[in-house]
Nucleic acid binder design. Sequence first.
DNA 1: ATGAAAGCGCTAACAT
DNA 2: ATGTTAGCGCTTTCAT
Lengths: 347, 347
Amino acid sequence: MKDVAQLAGVSPKTVSNVLTGAVAVREGTRERVQAAMDELDFVPNLSARGLRNGRTGIIGVALPDLATAFSADLAHTIVEQAHERGLAVQFEETAAEPEREHDLVSRARTHLIDGLILNPVRLEDSVIERVDHLPPVVLIGEVEQHRADRVYVDSRVASREITEHVLSRGARRIAALGGAVRGQDGKATAGLRLLGYLDALRDAGLEADPQLQVDVEQWTIGGAAAAVEELLARQVPFDAVVAFTDTLAFGALHALHRAGLRVPEDVLVTGFDDVEHAAFTLPPLTTVAFTRTDYVSAALDLLSARFEERAGRRDDGPSQAVVIPHRLVLRESTQGTPAGYVPTGSP
Amino acid sequence: MKDVAQLAGVSPKTVSNVLTGAVAVREGTRERVQAAMDELDFVPNLSARGLRNGRTGIIGVALPDLATAFSADLAHTIVEQAHERGLAVQFEETAAEPEREHDLVSRARTHLIDGLILNPVRLEDSVIERVDHLPPVVLIGEVEQHRADRVYVDSRVASREITEHVLSRGARRIAALGGAVRGQDGKATAGLRLLGYLDALRDAGLEADPQLQVDVEQWTIGGAAAAVEELLARQVPFDAVVAFTDTLAFGALHALHRAGLRVPEDVLVTGFDDVEHAAFTLPPLTTVAFTRTDYVSAALDLLSARFEERAGRRDDGPSQAVVIPHRLVLRESTQGTPAGYVPTGSP
DNA sequence: ATGAAAGCGCTAACAT
DNA sequence: ATGTTAGCGCTTTCAT
């Protein structure tokens, strides 16, 4: 920058002013500086700027697994919107080891990021609590947590509604794909969606059968397919599968087909998230949709607001929660009254 | 750091030594310093370190669209492996605007990254050429480009092989889904895969029908489905679809099913990349597979080698190219001899 | 094995 | 509207 200043016959500060645009610079001066920058092929050093300003313009995003359809969709939307706001995005994955979530949060300060968007798998209140001097954190997705800003859809209500829809089609033995109640160590998302499912059963006067609460080890298509195959092998009769994510539903569709069961004639299937593929499965999948861009812009708005608080040395306000509205998208996978899966052999 | 030094009764340099581990520190001193760091909840400032060292420990990754299954898979693998190597990963998307690719490369220096992994959509030689003083760049995927390191699978050969496989099943009118020959502005990947397809037809003594080279505007499931629907509407007979990516094949499966055509009884379908979902479609998809981890570790190895060159102030060696082996994965979507789609109406 | 001093590139504060 | 000064937090000489 000194070189540019010298070539343009100004001081480094003026070059800085031209770059940041914060302070007015006379037109002629600006042009000379600009010419000098072009001439020298000058690019500002963001490390230095970051050191000086205490802000890097990078936000961190931590998702369970970037290869999962929903996370990928989210990642795409975040990058797109962050780019529009002049922010770069650094990604981390949290699903590999359970401790990684805590590690990530506690070391967030070191990682050159101004703030963190975190989609926790099983974050407990304590994690945020234990760590002080954090950069702003926005939690997305379900988590019982009141120390940090949050953006989420009302999973419990959505799950109840989609279960009610399946009930309205005549299903009575509905499998919940994504996890049984398992205390604290289960996935937060799974917990709430299971509660919604149970709400619907209770309201319909049905008893919940624990055999129909199907745990899935790996939340992948293959993991879900294996879980449904095991359910079939256990000879448990059922006439619908309410999956806690679209990815799990994809696995269910596959396993049911391999078993010779038809969707929706024999078994109804629903998902959650409405990823692109959900509209193109065979049959297309009934699922819960919400506007991805609203979801992401709410998260970025919350972060930005915190940035400004800090810049203005204002006190941090109380944590905010934004609920993104959801809606049911009805497709062929629930069009009809299911005949049900009736085990043929002995259990 | 000064505070830590003071509390531990040493100089800042010693604290630095403890942190980096580069220089030996006496055991007792190390412990005192460590205790002081814990006491003060000290975290090193990476901006400062980056400024001083000229390296940030962040690499940039530019992919066309993070929501696409293949990109998402790649992103996942990159984050995972970079994490193991102590690198953080910053993502950008390039598909939105065509100019973004060039923008990205030319501004790479500003973005706090030590190196760039770029999956170009249509990068021409000139882009790298025009930009000087770049950080190390590794290109992944197809691109005619000899100025930067590259990692790729031999798309042309793979495409020829999968087309030959479809021919061996008896298909004769094979649609290529992903783009016709369109000169310089087409996608590099599409170009090579089309060439492989044409190679196979030629070797089989078949004439290529331009009507069967189906352009896809948006490389999404929906875009591919629309393109296949349009092909059907044009009343062009065909008995197989060789799609240039799995995502495109998913769209084809959907469109064919909606049109009442069965796969593989009426039409064979193949994909490319072997993303997870390819094994779970109805029917499961024959596709081209390659080991994702090898692909990514080759890219990271190339980058790391360049980092070391620069650190050692050695001259940059000539650019390297690593070809990752591929293999055909045969699944049900090509099991059988297709009856073919025979238009019923008049064209 | 440890310390002292200097400087990486930038910008906020203050001066002009 | 522009220049001067100082310092962000770290690490690399060079001493000791």
